[in-house]
């Protein structure tokens, strides 16, 4: 189930979730960065938890709920994060942004009622590289989005 829709796919057995999302299902919002778990451009949520989709085998995910950046149309929380990113000027080349937005979405989900401090937030973002912003505006924007939640 990707973003609430189930997709029957025939793919190569060891294809990663990232490959299938992009190449078979056309979810190009999920980006290919390093392909080995170090940059976070491919971040999606699996049952609400953030994951690097390049480190998961697609065929092992068939009964999971997968959300990609494309789920923003139906997810006000993601929209709120995006709005803050836009306001704060946190988007430059933007290649890292869908992954980072999903990581922050996962953090909000995981934290429930708990307060999200800057330290916790940065700890979560350590799985996502942004080469443009120095993270400063991303942290400012994310904290605002988290407080709002």
């Amino acid at each position: 189930m990707v973003n609430g829709v189930s997709h029957p796919v025939v793919c190569k057995p060891f294809d990663t979730l990232l490959t299938v999302l992009r190449e078979d299902l056309g979810y190009f919002g999920t980006k290919f960065g390093c392909g080995i778990g170090y940059c976070g451009a491919c971040t999606v949520l699996i049952d609400g938890k953030s994951a690097h989709s390049c480190c998961l085998i697609a065929t092992t995910m068939s009964d999971r709920k997968i959300s990609t950046i494309e789920s923003c149309d139906d997810d006000p929380v993601i929209q709120k994060i995006q709005d803050q990113f836009l306001k704060e000027g946190a988007i430059q080349c933007g290649y890292c942004i869908p992954g980072i937005v999903m990581t922050v979405r996962g953090l909000i989900e995981e934290s429930g009622q708990r307060v999200i401090t800057e330290e916790i937030l940065r700890g979560h973002l350590d799985g996502n590289i942004c080469r443009c912003s120095g993270y400063a505006s991303i942290v400012r924007a994310s904290l605002k989005a988290c407080v709002d939640e």
Binding site: G29, Q82, F85, L86, K87, G89, I91
Partner: peptide
């Protein structure tokens, strides 16, 4: 600060 015109498409993964 002006919101960049290409920002939304990038944030939504549509760019």
């Amino acid at each position: 600060s002006l919101e960049r015109s290409d920002g939304r498409a990038k944030a939504e993964g549509k760019a």
